[in-house]
């Protein structure tokens, strides 16, 4: 008989959910929704330059590594399609 465990868990979850919802309601979390829309924009932070500062050698190495991976992927598929 496993229903009692599941029902107990479901009911606990429902009661906690309702309790949190009621707290939010009483706490005014659902009021002033127009101001809430702007909350993600209200941070003041220094502007960060968007340019890359990576050194050429390292970038080229990683780029060619990725390129080799792409080539190997195509080679694998080509081999399977045409040479087997």
């Amino acid at each position: 008989m496993y229903y009692p465990y599941f029902l107990a868990y479901i009911l606990t979850g429902v009661f906690i959910g309702i309790a949190v919802f009621l707290w939010a309601l009483k706490n005014g979390q659902f009021s002033d929704q127009q101001r809430a829309r702007f909350l993600a924009l209200e941070e003041v932070r220094p502007e960060v330059a968007a340019t890359s500062h990576g050194s050429g050698f390292q970038l080229y190495f990683i780029f060619y590594l990725a390129l080799a991976g792409v080539a190997a992927s195509f080679a694998l598929v080509g081999y399977a399609l045409f040479f087997q």
Binding site: H53, L65, A72
Partner: peptide
């Protein structure tokens, strides 16, 4: 499997980029 290789190499490239961004980033 070929696409898996692509994803793995993207992870290597991403780790290198993120590691260098967090440590020893030459940016001012």
């Amino acid at each position: 499997a070929a696409l898996g290789l692509l994803i793995f190499l993207s992870a290597v490239s991403g780790f290198y980029n993120i590691f260098r961004s967090v440590f020893s980033n030459p940016g001012e």
